[in-house]
Design a protein around this nucleic acid. Sequence first.
DNA 1: AGCTACTCCTGGTAGC
DNA 2: TGCTACCAGGAGTAGC
Length: 281
Amino acid sequence: MPELPEVETIARLVRPALVGRRIAGLRASWKRTLGGAAPSSVARAVCGATLASVGRRGKFVVLALERAGAPAGGLFLHLRMSGRLHVDPMEAPRRPYERVSLALDDGNELRFVDVRKFGRFVFARDPGAILGALGPEPLDAAFTAEWLDRGLRSRRRALKPLLLDQTFVAGLGNIYVDESLFRARLHPLTRSDRVGPDGAARLWRAIRRTLGEAIEREGSSFDAFYLTPEGQPGSYQERFRVYGRDAKPCRRCGTRIQRLVVGQRGTHVCPRCQRRSRSRR
DNA sequence: AGCTACTCCTGGTAGC
DNA sequence: TGCTACCAGGAGTAGC
């Protein structure tokens, strides 16, 4: 599923085709993708605006809009489970599961394709309305081991649901949380306030390395859902240490990887490398 | 505050 | 072979 590394890869690949283009039209074939706004009002808000930049914040692709050189809101794209972006010539046949498309002034279209319809393609005048509640970017300088240590200490939640909480840190999802916890040798159910400074430092390093390596490999493609806009799969899935490796031997110690459910999410651990803190009654 | 359950969706697949 | 039932999962919400 697209998480930070996949979204970053997508934003990078789609950027050259979009920056500087003027929006000529918008079509929505599944209204909910627009987040509840009427297609006509979204069209009015974006048509004629220029795509000033293509960025990423957490798991959002952010298309900043300008009119006459002044900021004019943005489009905030969340791919959720199965969303994909394509830039196609206008005359190319519609893609299956296409939900929203933006016509550009160069004859191309940005197409938002989403089998499961969970994805969002939302216009907002104020970026803060969409992004305001997000926690820090895990690859930014502001996200330090000390910050993480304090953050873990100030909550009393199981590590996994806390790391999945986008208001705590932005961009992590199920895969990279499992991978990061394994690398930090922390159990997903360990309470955050019992991790300690050493554990926090290991977790910090694990998150940065895992995300960094995944971006280098253009994300993970283990099923048909995630492909880069060029149609290429990422290759980080070959490096998974625990995710999807249920019953396979741990790459570190050989113990069978276990699958459990934490917060309704499939969770993968090495029971030997990731000991659950025993201080828990 | 933080937990669980439920919702939104559909293609893929396990099980019969 | 062909069918059905269930699963995956990010995030929002409701209820406890």
